[in-house]
Every structure is written in structure tokens, then in C-alpha cells.
């Protein structure tokens, strides 16, 4: 563990000396802050519109409509998109050359000629990435929490804090999964450019192509229902579309996060335990790629041709 910590510290130091990486981190933070601001402005506009309607109805002596239910965490819903997109890119950027650059620069041979085991090297890199990604997410969480309090004037209760902590933990798992897959690709590829291109293609597939395929299937079901009209309707969320979505951790992350942050009115009152229980397959799907590629990375790095 001692050697892994030394390697992790080096990873941390080199990442924060990389200007492009710093720019992506800043972009990530800025967009998450902007998303809270936009979310809270929209929410406030909705509340103001309701107040205006109430004033008009009261002046005319009519019956008041039911007050809208307020789920303050919903103002954070845009963060889900930013983590799904930019968070994944940030993790890819952190990992695409983590192994191949060591090979290209000759430092891999230097490292392994020291009393360092190969699995310690992987553990060190994971630890370093974990600290970096965890640090970024904690800073984002604190920023957003502060902004949330300032813009809504509400103090989050235990339920909200619990939902936020679980959301950021899942964001950590999601980003680390991307990092681990990227690390594995970096071990397998001979140069950093190939690793980066492979991961960007994978990212496009996971984040855009697969969700589009699932949506197409849903639209197809909707069209069939319209044509069939009174005949037995098939559910729009078909088994096929759900199966397609299981190939995209991005979709799973979005779905679970949406439920956690109470962005969908229909499920907003569901308890945290119920949300997690209902999304258990999605959660397993979120953890699976990371665990699989972690095992593959540890196995692959033991091979002689990994050097």
C-alpha cells in the first residue's frame, strides 16, 4: 500500500500540472454551478407564476388551485446531464494515457525495476484517480449546496442531504467506471492517441447512440399503440428498449439520479430506500463495468507484453 500511495500522490501532482485537465475541471465546476442557478431561476419563475395566478383568482373571489408541490432538489437536475457528459469526458481524459504514456516515456520500465509490484502500480493509479475525481465531486457538492441554500433560501433537511450524498456517490462510481475502462484500454494500446480515440468512440456509443436506439424502440411502440388504438396496447417502455438501455451506464445513471433528485413528479415522493430498491438492476449495471474492467486491468498488467 505504501508504494501505491506514492504512485497515487504522483498521479495527483501530474494531473494538476496539466493545463488541459485543469480547464476541463473548471468547465465542469462552472457548468454545475450554472445548472443550479438556471434550475433555481426556473423554479422561482414557476412559483412566481403560481403566486400571480393566486392573486388574480383571489381578487376575483374564485377557488384557489392546489399549491404546486416543491421538491427543491429538482433544481439540481441539470447536473445529472453535466456529470453524464462532461464527468465521463473528464474521467477519460484522466485515464487515456495513464499507462500508455508510462510505456512511451520509458518510465514504466523504471517503475517496475524498483521494488514495486505490478498490481501496486494499478492500485496507485486507481487511488490517484479516486482522490482526484472524489475531490472534484466534493467541491462540486459543496459549491452546489451553498448555491442551493443561497438561491432557494431553504436549508436542506436530512432527506435532501442523504439523497445528495447518494447521488454524488453514484456520480463517483459512474466516473470511476469510465476511468477504469480507460485505464484498461490504456494498458492494451501502444500509444495514447489510439486509447483516446477508442474511448471517445465508446463514450459516444454509451452516451448518445444507445440511448437513441432505446428511444427509437420506444417511439416505435408509441406509433404501434396509436395505430392499434383500442386494440391491446403495448407498454411504451418495452422489454427491448429496457434491454438496450442496460448497455448504457449513462442511461442507468440518469434514471437513478433523476429519481434521487426528485426530478420526476410521479416518483418524487418515493423514499430513498424505495428508489434504491426499484433501481437495483440499474445500480448493478452501474457497478458492473467498473468491476469487470478492474479485474481485467489487474490481470492484463501481469502479462510480460504489458511493459
Amino acid at each position: 500500500m505504501h508504494n501505491s500511495k506514492i504512485i497515487a500522490a504522483k498521479e495527483f501532482r501530474t494531473a494538476y500540472k496539466d493545463k488541459v485537465f485543469i480547464m476541463i475541471v473548471l468547465l465542469f465546476l462552472l457548468m454545475s454551478i450554472a445548472s443550479v442557478y438556471i434550475g433555481s431561476t426556473t423554479k422561482n419563475a414557476e412559483l412566481k407564476a403560481y403566486q400571480d395566478i393566486v392573486s388574480v383568482i383571489q381578487s376575483e373571489g374564485g377557488a384557489l388551485p392546489a399549491a404546486p408541490e416543491i421538491f427543491p432538489l429538482a433544481i439540481l437536475k441539470n447536473i445529472i446531464t453535466y456529470i453524464t457528459m462532461i464527468g465521463a469526458v473528464l474521467a477519460i481524459f484522466l485515464g487515456f494515457d495513464s499507462f500508455s504514456s508510462e510505456r512511451e516515456n520509458g518510465t514504466l520500465k523504471l517503475l517496475l525495476s524498483k521494488p514495486v509490484y505490478r498490481d501496486q502500480l494499478i492500485t496507485g493509479k486507481l487511488l490517484g484517480a479516486g482522490v482526484i475525481i472524489g475531490g472534484i465531486l466534493i467541491v462540486t457538492l459543496l459549491f452546489n449546496l451553498t448555491l442551493f441554500i443561497v438561491t432557494t433560501g431553504l436549508l436542506p433537511g436530512v432527506n435532501e442531504i442523504l439523497r445528495l450524498v447518494i447521488f454524488f456517490f453514484l456520480a463517483f462510481v459512474y466516473m470511476m467506471s469510465f476511468y477504469i475502462v480507460t485505464l484498461y484500454v490504456s494498458i492494451r494500446t501502444q500509444d495514447r492517441t489510439s486509447g483516446f480515440l477508442i474511448m471517445m468512440v465508446l463514450w459516444v456509443f454509451i452516451s448518445f447512440v444507445i440511448p437513441q436506439l432505446a428511444d427509437t424502440q420506444k417511439n416505435f411502440a408509441y406509433a404501434l399503440n396509436s395505430i392499434a388504438s383500442t386494440v391491446t396496447q403495448i407498454p411504451s417502455d418495452t422489454a427491448l428498449s429496457k434491454t438496450i438501455e442496460y448497455f448504457s451506464p449513462a442511461v442507468q445513471f440518469s434514471n437513478v439520479s433523476g429519481d434521487l433528485l426528485q426530478t420526476v413528479s410521479a416518483t418524487a415522493t418515493t423514499s430513498v430506500a424505495s428508489v434504491l430498491g426499484k433501481n437495483l438492476p440499474a445500480l448493478l449495471d452501474l457497478f458492473f463495468p467498473g468491476i469487470l474492467f478492474l479485474i481485467l486491468s489487474y490481470t492484463r498488467v501481469q502479462r510480460e507484453d504489458a511493459i
Partner: peptide, 8 residues
Amino acid sequence: NVMLYGDL
């Protein structure tokens, strides 16, 4: 041809 860590 070892390059070491250029940013350090």
C-alpha cells in the same frame, strides 16, 4: 531513451 515525467 527514457523521458521521465516531463511536467515534474
